[in-house]
Design a protein around this nucleic acid. Structure first.
Lengths: 88, 88
DNA sequence: AATAAATCCTCGCGTTTATGAGGATTTTGC
DNA sequence: GCAAAATCCTCATAAACGCGAGGATTTATT
């Protein structure tokens, strides 16, 4: 099930729902993922000032896959300088 | 074009490619988005310690849509306590 | 090759984070 | 409605951030 993230805080609801779907407490989830309970709570409440790396770690730990949608022409600029033969 | 993010640092390549596809310099992109050039560079280089809110702001500014993929059963736990009639 | 442009990196500074522990407050189960 | 559990919030501290400015290094242009 794919869900678009419209604002930074929206990721919190995803995290909470994912955790609850697995029937585990904040406390335990935080512990097994390797962050503090306080921090996980902050994420779930929609704090935007959390570190990306740690947030990603939580998403991974809860089985949430992150996907980005970019314009087609961006593809030509990925693989930085790996024989960029299609750049206009 | 949808691209899965496998590790926190991978978002950097997306940001850089998106910026280059628009042919704007770090300097200008950073300015118009409202962050420092230094910070945008950090993101593009894959720093994981940047704040989620600011990273999201940059993604938005560059037209990168963020999507998450969660297990189906998570849906029942979104809309926190809005008549959750389908929770097992 | 040489110059100019763009990106990267370091430094110091003020501010903010993440954590742990403790106690409120809310939610859940009986 | 009560008691227990879960979540939230506050506080203090060490650590790390984000910014600005300056100079290196890389990449582009002629």
């Amino acid at each position: 099930m794919r869900i678009p993230i419209d604002n930074a805080a929206a990721i919190g609801k995803i995290v909470r729902a994912s955790r609850k779907a697995q029937k585990i407490r904040q406390d335990d989830a935080a512990g097994s993922i390797g962050v503090s309970e306080n921090f996980l709570g902050k994420i779930e409440r929609g704090s935007e000032s959390v570190q990306w790396g740690k947030l990603f770690q939580v998403l991974e730990g809860l089985g949430v896959q992150v996907i980005v949608d970019v314009p087609e022409n961006v593809a030509a600029y990925l693989n930085e300088s790996a024989s960029n033969k299609d750049k206009p």
